[in-house]
Design a protein around this nucleic acid. Structure first.
Length: 425
RNA sequence: GUGGCCGUAGCUCAGCCUGGUAGAGCCCCUGUUUGUGGUACAGGUGGUCGCGGGUUCAAAUCCCGUCGGUCACCCCA
């Protein structure tokens, strides 16, 4: 066997069963959760005009160097396109384009792309699900969004996730805080790492996100934004917290929680899976972005949303040993008369709703039995020359004591449902 | 973008230091069992040792480069 000449591109992977069963399971749980909240699905393009994302702010590396470029071939309209690195901006673009009635509640699911160096829980193509609520400043909208994300993790069976909560305040708050933070960082610049001294110039907030040992002392004593919230922001944040308490959703106030994109205002949050023994333990996050639609050329519109990384949620499920729901087949047809019977019978039984598998290549009885066992099927239907001549089939219970009974071929489909139910008891 | 570790059978890995005919376990196939799986035993298929160059009589093994994986940093879901 020669070595495969091609492999999946760097930072991408093939997700195969049974892992893919878990993915589709998570996706359907998510869909169910969001549908139950009156959110409609939006299926937006996988690529967009690069400018849609450039409005996110250029202090973010996502915008500056982590996008996959595409170029429209039409010489009359040489558009610069990119594979979407996130979806909130796409959705705000869709909002300004279609101007739906507000509140506009949407959910999405799909791959996103960032040109990064891969590592644990980080891929160049990664799968996210998320939701956005546009057109309401109501803090209860924040609570609804957070609660839907939280319920998703719950339904997925994850017990070890933690909700981190913070408020970045409005523009006024941020300006005041930035000033104080810059002043503080300047005073303590000498104690900061080289990287952080750099970050400080571009986006002081992000210094709080540093994981370097050297920076921790400075970060620890830095002024916190909660002390700078103005009345409006403070009130908003209080109602959010009260709402979460009313829903009995636990959270941890983390005044140093900073998110990667510049557009966030007021409420920001992150779900982490502390059980994940990797540097990338954030499984989801989001927040309010009241100025974003306007920045994309739309009317002033408030917005709040979240995104959940399915790849990392997958890792968290594995870390918590949550069982994978698999699509086991129910019946395995064994045919030693040449294969015609297996062909006909499996088709017949599939049509009436059973999941049925069979062997190919006219293998031996023994080999087919082995395949039947491996398939996980409850029941084997055996057709040999004896059965064929008698116009019968033999049923064998593969999971119990191996009981076999003979049955008329004609009465098979009628008797099967009851028999299977009996056996799985 | 920076750094550590790793690339040998479908999978998990040994062999590499000290160069001399490519190994184990699992999986898969066949048989013991003349129509019957899950246990046991026996046998078998499968590898230009990631790729390219160099050193050498001789390279999986030493050297250089490159690609990929992985983990961390930067950054981020």
């Amino acid at each position: 066997m020669s070595k495969s000449q091609f492999q999946a591109p760097k930072g991408t992977r093939d997700i195969m069963a049974p892992e893919s069963d878990r993915v589709s399971n998570l996706l359907s749980i998510f869909e169910e959760t969001l549908n139950s909240g009156g959110y409609g699905q939006i299926i937006s393009p996988i690529f967009e005009d690069i400018r849609v994302f450039q409005r996110l702010g250029d202090s973010s590396q996502i915008v500056t160097k982590e996008m996959f470029d595409l170029f429209d071939k039409d010489p009359k309209n040489p558009q610069h396109l990119v594979l979407r690195p996130e979806l909130t901006a796409s959705i705000c673009r869709a909002f300004t384009q279609h101007r739906p009635v507000t509140p506009w509640k949407v959910w999405y699911q799909g791959p996103q792309f960032r040109y990064e160096k891969p590592q644990a829980g980080r891929y160049r193509q990664f799968l996210q699900v998320g939701a956005e609520l546009l057109g309401s400043p109501d803090p209860h909208a924040d609570v609804e969004i957070i609660s839907l994300a939280s319920r998703f993790f719950q339904k997925a069976g994850l017990s070890n996730t933690k909700l981190l909560l913070n408020s970045l305040g409005d523009a006024e708050t941020r300006a005041n805080y930035n000033e104080a933070l810059i002043g503080y960082l300047n005073l303590n610049q000498a104690d900061l790492s080289e990287q952080s001294q750099n970050t400080m110039l571009k986006n002081p907030l992000r210094v709080l996100d540093s994981k370097r040992e050297q920076d921790q002392a400075v970060i620890h004593s830095a002024p916190v934004i909660s002390d700078f919230l103005n009345d409006d922001s403070k009130k908003h944040f209080q109602i959010v917290q009260k709402g979460l308490s009313m829903l009995e959703i636990d959270y941890e106030l983390t005044p140093r929680l900073v998110r990667g994109l510049d557009y966030y205002t007021k409420t920001t949050f992150e779900f982490i899976a502390p059980g994940l023994d990797t540097a990338q333990n954030a499984v989801g996050g989001g927040g309010r972005y009241d100025g974003l639609v306007e920045a994309l050329g739309g009317p002033p519109t408030e917005g709040i949303g979240f995104a959940i990384g399915i790849d990392r949620t997958l890792l968290a499920c594995e870390a918590e040993n949550i069982s994978v729901p698999t699509n086991n087949i129910e019946i395995f047809v064994i045919d030693t008369t040449g294969g015609d019977e297996a062909l006909i019978l499996s088709d017949e039984l599939r049509q009436i709703g059973f999941s049925v598998d069979r062997s190919f290549d006219q293998r031996s009885m023994k080999s087919q039995m082995k395949a039947a066992d491996r398939s996980g099927a409850q029941l084997a239907i055996i057709i040999g020359t004896d059965e064929l001549n008698e116009n019968q089939v033999t049923l064998r219970d593969l999971r119990g004591d191996g009981t076999q009974i003979a049955l008329d071929r004609q009465s098979l489909s009628k008797a099967l449902p009851e028999m299977l139910q009996e056996m799985t008891k």
